[in-house]
Amino acid sequence: MCLAIPGKIIEINNDEHSAIIDFDGIQQKVIVALVPGAKVGKYAIVHAGYAIELMNEKEAREAIDQWDEMSEELGLDLNDVI
């Protein structure tokens, strides 16, 4: 039920608080009223037809980089896992 999936915003309709979001080639109209910073090019996390959070490429990469910062503490080396 709390399933939410990421998609990329490709069009915004400010009047309707909606956006067209691309999910791996399937495009769907989504309500973006709960995420005021919605912009074309950003990623949205979508639950039951509503965007509940946004992320951009930089933020997503920084979040993964945080794992790298934690890696020493966690006893991991992320440099050779990809």
Partner: peptide, 18 residues
């Protein structure tokens, strides 16, 4: 959809290390 950083999320080597 593959989000940025998904190569680590899907890395089998990372799974083994974890």
């Amino acid at each position: 959809m593959d989000i940025p950083g998904s190569e680590i999320l899907k890395s089998k080597k990372f799974t083994e290390k974890l």
